[in-house]
Amino acid sequence: MAYQPVVIDPENPLGYYTGIYLAQTADERVKRKLGPDYKGGGAVTSILLYLVEHGVVDAVVVARRKKGLYGETIIAKTPEEILEATGPKWSIVPYTLGLREKLTSMDVGRVAFVGLPCQAQFLRQVKMFPLMESDFSKKIYLIISLFCMGTFAVESFLNYIKKSYHVSPDEIENISINGDELVVKHVRGEIRIPIRDALFHLQHGCLTCPDYTGLFADLSAGKALKPGFTLLITRTKLADKIVREASNTGYLKLSEPDEESLRIVIEKAREKIMRSYKYLSTVL
């Protein structure tokens, strides 16, 4: 098996990879969906569209934002469903029993999964080391992980916004990052929260998590420094082939990563490993 064993090491925080690219969506539908002032990528959505429209996979499992900070996991089979799920997520969307039932009963062979590093770890284990016959190991075709510094403890964060800014959860329409501020749009206007303050409301479990980029995934993706660009890290031959094909068929534009984006991702990945050592030692 071509898969390289994962070793978590602050000296080599990006782990094993085959390629790093700077990517930008070249798909008009994705651009339209993101709107003119959206600063994030869209590259992952474009790759998913390529996978489904070219019959590489039968379905993709993605999280879609439901309301405010909450989301749900969906199994998308059409471009429309994939586009629907575009955009940032702020909380972890758990895998549920319903997902397993649907995956095992649905007539789908190859599935691409998009999740957070912790979920990529789970999927890789399921794929490599099936501990149950009922595992959907054979259906896991591609694992895509989004960069993650931690997810919010939703209740605690919402409560903080309510207490400090008098915005109740139902009023929140959107949250985005701008520089080192979180911009919360709500029905009556918007508030800006320094990220530093928001960090108190990360889930405790995330503080011990050592994985920033998704070391267990085939493909890792996250924001690059340049607005509108996504940094892609391919970790398997399969992922590399898919990214190139998506570019050859006009879904993506690829370029060399700039040094500053690389430096930042390495720094953050190392920071997260060190943070996890620090917190883990307090819970053993």
Binding site: Y95, C118, Q119, F122, T151, C206
Partner: peptide, 8 residues
């Protein structure tokens, strides 16, 4: 962290 791996 509520990932759901255990449930699955």
């Amino acid at each position: 962290v509520g990932c759901g791996a255990c449930v699955l």
